[in-house]
Design a protein around this nucleic acid. Structure first.
Lengths: 134, 134
DNA sequence: ATGACTGCAAAGACTTTGCATCTTT
DNA sequence: AAAGATGCAAAGTCTTTGCAGTCAT
């Protein structure tokens, strides 16, 4: 028997918050963000809904940065920059890995591909500025 | 004052095990692997040395897969395939993101880049076979 | 002898989960 | 009324850390 999904105000709010931000939030960030409007929200609910959204393919995990899982409501293949200093995750829309990558993996290895992530690590402009000030 | 590094038999063994395998191991895997030869090894030592190796740039983290951080002794930029079914991490040596990616991020965004990761997610051939058997 | 390295176990940190209650259909 | 969703808090996992003893230099 298939499990059905019902409407919930909190779920809607969590997804909306995901779609409003470009910060690639953590569960904790969403929780803090929504708390004023939903004082009785619990962190467990945020986690449960993020898991649901990911299973539905509505959001995607960008990976774990500094111990916190980061999520993205933009599920199209695009590149991220991760600042290893302040741990911000920034979209790099102009640069892509190329669509042929997945096809090539299919052909050469016989794997079934789902998606791919290109992530560039380094130091963002703001953190570079801070270095100079010290 | 700079902290100096001394020789240690366990450390050598951990690094050797890292370099011997292509499995992109977890700390736990290394611990289990080395336990027969080093019965008094502790998991904490494995974690401490992995952290040291990463700081030294001798190894690199491939990211967290299914809750476990995966490490790679090959620190050159190369592509990985992650099976979302069995969680194996497989090198894809023939396919690369292209070296110009980092340069482009530097120029367009003013970020300082360190390295980049291209990861393809999907189902590996062995897991595809298992699906058929069911 | 000094300071680094380790084992052990406790502590930390993020995430998941059980259960009673509330909400949606 | 039935079944999903939530709050709360406890439990679970992976990882880090404090401390005393051991080892390298």
């Amino acid at each position: 028997m298939e499990r059905t999904t019902r409407y919930s105000k909190k779920r809607e709010a969590i997804l909306e918050a995901m779609r409003m931000t470009k910060s690639h939030p953590t569960a904790e960030w969403l929780y803090q963000q929504l708390k004023p409007e939903h004082p009785d929200l619990s962190l467990g609910t945020v986690y449960r809904n993020l898991t649901l959204f990911r299973q539905q393919g509505v959001i995607r995990s960008v990976g774990v940065v500094d111990g916190h899982e980061r999520f993205d409501a933009n599920t199209e293949n695009h590149t991220h920059f991760v600042c290893t200093c302040c741990h911000s995750v920034i979209d790099i829309p102009d640069i892509a890995a190329g669509e042929q990558v997945e096809q090539q993996v299919c052909r050469q290895y016989g794997f079934r591909t789902d998606h791919h992530d290109l992530t560039v690590f380094g130091t963002c402009d703001q953190c570079i500025k801070k270095e100079v000030k010290q």
